[in-house]
């Protein structure tokens, strides 16, 4: 899974969703590989608009990438092709193949196997929310 992907993931437990601690999920025992991908500056620039920068900084630091700018690059900064290439490498080419993603709120661990995290919950965590009854006619 890509570093970019983690920026769009949170805990599957309903009670955790939206809590400050549940985003981003934290890597544990992450095994990384670099996989070369085609570089498209416009794509990187546009995806960057959608990235939660604070979350990305946390994720990147956990994986050992500590050179991210403090603020999300905007405007003219995005004309810097080297910066875009570096972000491309981090967001799209850096893949986590094995390890865990851990929720900072409930501490539940989601296993990552062969690059695919599994968010299926054990029964006691995954029951349907009570509000469901409201939809039944």
């Amino acid at each position: 899974m890509k570093v970019l992907t983690v920026n769009f993931l949170t805990c599957a437990v309903k009670a955790c969703k939206g809590t400050a601690l549940s985003f981003p999920l934290h890597f544990r025992d992450a095994e990384l590989v670099q996989q070369e991908m085609d570089f498209h500056p416009t794509f990187v620039r546009n995806v960057l608009l959608r990235v939660d920068w604070e979350g990305l900084k946390v994720t990147a630091a956990e994986l050992g990438f500590t050179t991210l700018p403090a603020e999300k690059p905007e405007g003219e900064a995005l004309d810097n092709e080297q910066l875009l290439k570096d972000l491309h490498t981090l967001l799209l080419e850096t893949q986590v193949t094995e390890g865990k993603l851990v929720c900072g709120n409930c501490q539940h661990e989601y296993a990552i196997k062969e690059g695919i995290p599994n968010f299926l919950l054990p029964n006691h965590l995954g029951s349907a929310p009570k509000s469901e009854a409201a939809f039944v006619e």
Binding site: M1, K2, L4, T5, F8, L9, T10, C11, A12, V13, K14, K17, G18, F23, Q35, M37, R50, D52, Y110, I116, P117, N118, F119, L120, L121, G126, A128
Partner: peptide, 21 residues
């Protein structure tokens, strides 16, 4: 591999609210 996939239940999606186009 251009994209990413996860195993998840449609009723318990592991995505933050309000982020997707």
């Amino acid at each position: 591999d251009h994209h990413s996939v996860v195993v998840a239940d449609a009723l318990l999606l592991p995505h933050p609210h309000s982020r997707f186009d």
